[in-house]
Write a protein that binds this DNA or RNA. Structure first.
Lengths: 357, 357
DNA sequence: CATTAGCACTCACTCTTCCTGAGTGCTAAG
DNA sequence: CTTAGCACTCAGGAAGAGTGAGTGCTAATG
């Protein structure tokens, strides 16, 4: 059933007020809103109907109303006013990103921190690879007696390396041979598919440097597995405690513990099926502990098949408009930053000016 | 003034009981302890004196006593019974470490998590380099047209790399020349001391690949700066909320925020001047927010001039004996793990069995 | 017929008061 | 020096009363 305009307006007002005050909203409070030309009695009637329809709830008979889960849902989906980020806000987000993102590997933590600061809520940030990787190119460097540096370029242009120390006496040319063999037969396959025979073959062709092969294969598998695994960081949990709904320490603890344990492992999975910014209102959460806690999250591209996620955890009564706006802006800015051409690994360290000469 | 044996015993009992119960300890409770052959009146007299001496405090006239800061200090320094880790405990710590430490770069986070689990308190973990680094060796790999991989071996045997993409047409031999020049003139110096003249000289000798030089120098500086910076992780903050002293949400929030912000930047500094396991009792903390929160921390060696720190934050009434014991054991095990020969970078991935052939 | 004023009713919260009991300090006896 | 005994203190819980924000319903109004 479609709601009348007036009901929508009342519902929106209730949610807005409740978000601000964290107190049940009475009919009088609504009347006092600018742009509300009805008496408290009328509002009471409307509120009674909205309650019957399941959009509002009454903590007890003589209290005001608070939004129910479906009330929030409706609010988020249809009623919420667009929150326009002020210039200041966009600026400070951009500055923060510019300033702090020198290195990608610490990105996750830093983003968590920044998002938490921007939303004044605990933030979760994660990065993971979505498509599978393979090795594109092998190089071996003789770094000293018994010391070899293996350098792998992955299919996403990321480069990783490992120092291998073995009691072996391989020469430069041995290594050249081995890397040629590796490049010929071990590229572009996913590491699980490396068979014993293949390894045998490579080892036979490798001559003096054969003992390196298992170490390298190990390293490859480890690396690919690692970069497929998701990296998660949480920051700003203490902000929860500033909110009235978490004065109940037990609740706060459950939620925080849940963020620590649960979210770290589950959220990335949820992320898979998500696109754009998504709001999970209280009881829509799978996890029992989060039933009265909402989550807003959004994805962004890191480039090279990697995806990032930022999310915020807060009370069902959170300022969805503001939070989603800031989060989306964050995600957008990050995506843009990573899309900057020619900076596959260490954005910020190759500047155009340096290409002089 | 030296305390009588009996006073020491009473003080120890008060601290022990208070640690267990979080309630002010009355004379009767002490009498009921095994091995306590005095009446409550005697104990009361002793407690009155200990209070006068400043080792105990009375929250109000008709309550039992709680240890004062100097009481804790004395306890930690002299009275505390050695806590013997059970075999189970050492085992589970070792298992945890074995299992989870495949990669050093994620070590900090994982350690924080493990320590938090082992102590049931929020844990902080940090790693930083204590002595300064330089580059020991440069290698340049031609990875395609306009694509060069720079591989640096640092003085601590760590290897880092960077993919550089520039519109340049350098040949293998150009790169060989450049790396020779770099190895000849840019090794073993700290990166701040690279002068403009030096760079000029290198660039002049570098021929076609000259445009790479500034990028590489930049990368070097960035890398060395980065690995000097400290990496910190916090885990398990929610555990604080389980403790009765943090039922006061405001206090909990202040402490947690302080851990987030403050500790992250300050603790590494404190670490510098520390050796072994150190206990900071409540008011000894510099930070105002932590005045009634204790910190136990200890350092360990990661090898190659790197140092790690693990610390635990908890109420002044924490089980110092147990916590210090577990923390020390952790630190010891980690030190040992990193001291394993021949595994400078990725412990766990080179196993002796792989050295067959 | 939608809106509003008015009124009786409900009920969470706060404040006050009272009571209980754990714990104390002191004194006097062992 | 140690201990039994006693009067005293005081935090914390329980019970009760008062307050006021908010409700639903009814009847009057434009």
């Amino acid at each position: 059933m479609e709601l009348s305009e007036r009901k929508k307006k009342v519902l929106r007002s209730v949610v807005d007020l409740y978000i601000r005050t964290a107190e049940p909203v009475g009919s009088k409070a609504i009347t006092e809103l600018p742009d509300m030309k009805y008496s408290s009695a009328t509002i009471r009637n409307e509120m009674a109907e909205l309650t019957a329809m399941g959009y509002l709830e009454q903590p007890h008979t003589s209290a005001g109303r608070i939004p129910s889960a479906s009330g929030y849902r409706l609010y988020v989906d249809e009623l919420m006013m667009d929150y326009r980020l002020s210039l200041d806000e966009t600026k400070s987000i951009n500055n923060a990103i510019e300033e702090k993102m020198q290195r990608v590997d610490k990105m996750v933590e830093k983003v968590a921190r920044l998002v938490s600061q921007a939303t004044e809520l605990p933030a979760i940030s994660a990065a993971s690879r979505s498509r599978s990787l393979s090795v594109k190119r092998y190089d071996l460097i003789l770094a000293g007696p018994g010391s070899v540096i293996a350098v792998l370029m992955l299919s996403n242009e990321q480069v990783v390396n490992k120092l291998i120390k073995l009691p072996l006496d391989a020469s430069e040319s041995d290594l050249k041979l081995l890397s040629a063999v590796l490049n010929a037969s071990m590229t572009d396959i996913s590491p699980e598919h490396i068979t014993a025979e293949q390894m045998d073959k490579v080892m036979r062709s490798a001559g003096n440097a054969a003992s390196l092969v298992p170490v390298i294969v190990d390293f490859v598998q480890e690396t690919l597995r690692q970069s497929e695994s998701t990296n998660v960081a949480v920051f700003g949990q203490s902000r929860l405690l500033g909110l009235p709904e978490y004065r109940d320490v037990d609740k706060a603890q459950r939620v925080m513990a849940s963020i620590d344990e649960d979210a770290l492992s589950n959220l990335p999975a949820v992320m898979e099926n998500t696109n754009g910014t998504r709001v999970i209102v209280g009881p829509e959460n799978v996890s029992e502990e989060l039933k009265d806690t909402s989550v807003v999250m959004t994805k962004f591209d890191i480039g090279d098949g990697m995806q990032g996620m930022i999310g915020v955890v807060g009370p069902t009564r959170m300022d969805y408009a503001k939070v989603t706006a800031r989060l989306s802006y964050f995600a957008e800015s990050l995506s843009k930053m990573f899309a900057k051409p020619e900076q596959p690994q260490l954005p910020g360290s190759i500047e155009p000016e340096e290409q002089k000469e």
